[in-house]
């Protein structure tokens, strides 16, 4: 662990000002959220909470909720961004879900982070909080035998406040629309392939986090400007404190000590993966829709590239793709590590 103390005072003050600005902004945006069903009185001390923004993800939600309930998430806090497919109604009927609704712009709320920032501030204090999208599924060492509380207990005991989980893009073997995703189905029955070893890493000195890029999206859609490829580093699991804030999506946080989830002396710290079930039969429709809305990061250039790629029939699968088996396979490949948690 190094860094914090060596920063000169002005640099620290600057980061602090930025952090306070982001928190103030999130608090200010709370008015954009209308509670639809507020069950937050069910939250007990030590419960693990999940914070999610969603828009028109009805078909994915049942499996998503089931997956995280099984891991041990006790309460879900959803922000629904003007869905039209009945997903809000579905969420309303779930007894462990609190739902807020907003019609405000996704882009102008820092891609939903202001909304979640407020909910984290209000309900996440002193809880282990998982901030994910409906297409992200957490895999961590021993996740087949130990619940999420085992991990969070161990992290607390070892003095860690955050847990990294890199985004691992999963894709099917054939075309995206070859097999239709059914509601409630495990998406990784269809999209079970991933790229084993083509990730680039650099360090962001401003916040002290790592910047991981690469994977199938970079190789298929950004072969000539890899720097525009999507960032894959994420820190979705944090023992939250009111003073914390996500800086950009869930890629990094302030204060920057929370980004110190990697060892620089050669050792390995524990880490997991977020399996990314973006590339399913639902993707084509979604990407057209998102392109029309223009609400995504960097002028939606990612979606532009996907759309162009899809028109040309780009396939993500290649001979070197690996079929997903379990967390041990990911650990052997060096995508995740159990660190000091045997």
């Amino acid at each position: 662990m190094q860094g914090l103390k060596h920063l000169p005072l002005p640099a620290r003050l600057r980061r602090r000002a930025e952090r306070q600005w982001l928190i103030a902004r999130a608090i200010n945006r709370r008015r954009a959220l209308t509670p639809v069903s507020d069950r937050t009185d069910q939250i007990r001390k030590r419960d693990i909470l999940a914070f999610v923004t969603q828009r028109n993800e009805r078909v994915r939600l049942p499996y998503f909720l089931e997956y995280y309930r099984n891991l041990g998430v006790r309460h879900f806090l959803f922000v629904d961004n003007a869905s039209t497919d009945g997903s809000a109604e579905y969420l309303k009927t779930q007894t462990d879900v609190s739902l807020w609704r907003t019609r405000a712009s996704y882009k102008q709320s820092r891609f939903g982070m202001d909304w979640l920032g407020w909910l984290l501030f209000r309900y996440g204090h002193n809880h282990w909080c998982l901030t994910v999208d409906p297409d992200e599924f957490l895999i961590y060492p021993h996740c087949d035998t130990r619940p999420l509380t085992a991990l969070t207990d161990w992290l607390s005991d070892s003095g860690h406040r955050s847990f990294p989980a890199m985004l691992l893009d999963m894709y099917p073997k054939g075309n995206l629309d070859d097999e239709t995703y059914r509601e409630g189905q495990n998406p990784f029955e269809i999209a079970c392939w991933f790229d084993p070893a083509n990730y680039s890493i650099r360090k962001n000195n401003y916040l002290g986090n790592l910047w991981v890029q690469g994977g199938p999206r970079t190789r298929a859609f950004f072969p000539y400007n890899p720097q525009s490829g999507p960032a894959l580093n994420k820190i979705p699991l944090v023992r939250w404190n009111r003073r914390f804030t996500y800086y950009s999506s869930t890629h990094m946080l302030l204060p920057r000590s929370l980004n110190q989830v990697f060892d620089e002396d050669g050792g390995e710290m524990a880490s997991g993966c977020l399996l990314h079930a973006k590339f399913l039969s639902t993707f084509a429709k979604k990407s057209t829709e998102e392109l029309d809305r223009g609400q995504h990061y960097g002028n939606s250039q990612e979606y532009r590239a996907y759309h162009a790629g899809l028109q040309q029939g780009v396939r993500l699968w290649c001979n070197e793709s690996r079929r997903f088996r379990d967390w041990r396979q990911l650990e052997d490949l060096g995508l995740i590590s159990s660190g000091n948690w045997p």
Partner: peptide, 26 residues
């Protein structure tokens, strides 16, 4: 094994939770 993984890491591995600084790579 867990301890050596935590302290020394696997040689030649660069990942989200192992990013050794120059010449500390093991």
């Amino acid at each position: 094994r867990a301890l050596s993984r935590r302290v020394l890491g696997r040689p030649g591995l660069y990942m989200q939770s192992r990013f050794p600084r120059k010449d500390a790579e093991n």
